[in-house]
């Protein structure tokens, strides 16, 4: 029986996009804030919003939404959901501060040390959020499809890809990224190279991780093997192979490799747009498959 519906899928996806966008933005800021300024700003502008929508959706997925505040009066280190509720609260607060920090006018007038501390905290918190979405599922021994070590890693990498894709998408739609600095070929190329390099490394890692997940599940216990068959040959198989593996990994990976290899200075926003949209769709689809198929999988008791 399905207890967690598409609302949870949406929540896991939105938390992943937010965490990924924040992580990529702060990483780019630490590497070179001038050269990759567009990525820094785009990431900061995206980060707070998906997770806020996700939190609203999460509250309405509860059977008793009016009691949601009990999550924030309790702390149980053994419950991933309790720890996660605190992490996403602090993450949202930090992402809003980071958002204001990156607006064109500096409204906060923070000292460099303070803003650096906020960035470090944001990096740590976004890592925690991206990890938590997978750990939330993988710690349940009752659900063999979820109870694997590869799942949190898979969702973590997918989160960073989704964040990067959301940034790429925003840069396709608003190439100036709400700034009035002139658009030069050099800035476009710098930011594109960053995105494509990141995409290439991450998508390749996701491909490896998916392979490890599939082989590991297939060679594990009987419950795991029957759980795996739900996604590889059951009713989710087309979505999994076409929606996630082909559209979500392979095509964006080819697009990123093509962009990196050809070294053409002309900007190809349409290719970025398609690759980023496909990567985001794949990220949503894989979460939907895992959330739904995981609930159908059962540990064999005797």
């Amino acid at each position: 029986m399905i207890h967690w519906t598409y609302l949870i899928t949406f929540y896991l996806f939105s938390a992943g996009v937010s965490a990924g966008a924040m992580m990529v933005s702060i990483a780019a800021d630490f590497i070179n804030p001038v050269k990759y300024g567009k990525i820094v700003r785009a990431g900061a502008y995206i980060a707070p919003f998906p997770i806020m929508a996700g939190m609203v959706v999460l509250i309405f997925d509860l059977e008793r939404p009016l009691l949601f505040w009990l999550l924030l009066t309790t702390f149980k280190y053994k419950s991933i959901m309790s720890v996660g509720a605190w992490i996403i609260t602090f993450f949202s607060a930090t992402s809003i501060i980071y958002f204001i920090l990156n607006l064109r006018k500096d409204y906060l007038k923070l000292k460099p040390g303070t803003s650096r501390a906020i960035k470090i905290m944001g990096l740590i918190l976004s890592t925690c959020v991206a990890l938590y979405t997978g750990l939330l599922l993988s710690t349940l021994t009752a659900r063999p499809l979820w109870n694997t070590q590869a799942l949190p890693v898979l969702l973590f990498i997918s989160s960073v890809i989704d964040g990067l894709a959301a940034i790429a998408l925003l840069l396709c739609l608003r190439p100036d990224c709400f700034s009035q600095s002139p658009q030069t070929d050099e800035t476009i190329n710098n930011n594109n190279t960053f995105i494509h390099t990141g995409d290439f490394v991450l998508l390749f890692s996701l491909l490896i991780c998916t392979l490890v997940f599939l082989i590991g599940m297939g060679s594990s216990t009987g419950s795991a093997a029957s759980a795996l068959s739900i996604i590889t040959s059951g009713k989710f198989s087309v979505l999994f192979w076409v929606g996630f593996v082909a559209a979500g990994i392979v095509i964006p990976l080819i697009a990123a490799s093509y962009e990196l290899c050809t070294k053409v200075t002309t900007h190809r926003p349409w290719l970025n747009f398609i690759a980023a949209s496909l990567a985001l769709t794949g990220g949503y689809i894989v979460r939907g498959i895992i959330v739904n198929a995981g609930q159908l999988s059962r540990a064999i008791l005797f």
């Binding site: 207890h3 967690w4 997925d61 509860l62 059977e63 008793r64 009691l67 949601f68 009990l70 999550l71 419950s79 959901m81 349940l140 021994t141 009752a142 659900r143 609930q295 059962r298 540990a299 008791l301």
Partner: peptide
């Protein structure tokens, strides 16, 4: 009184013993 209905426990139960 303290249950918020997140259904995490239902999913964690290997015996499928819980319901809303």
């Amino acid at each position: 009184q303290r249950c918020i209905g997140c259904k995490y426990c239902i999913l964690s139960c290997p015996y499928n013993a819980r319901s809303v």
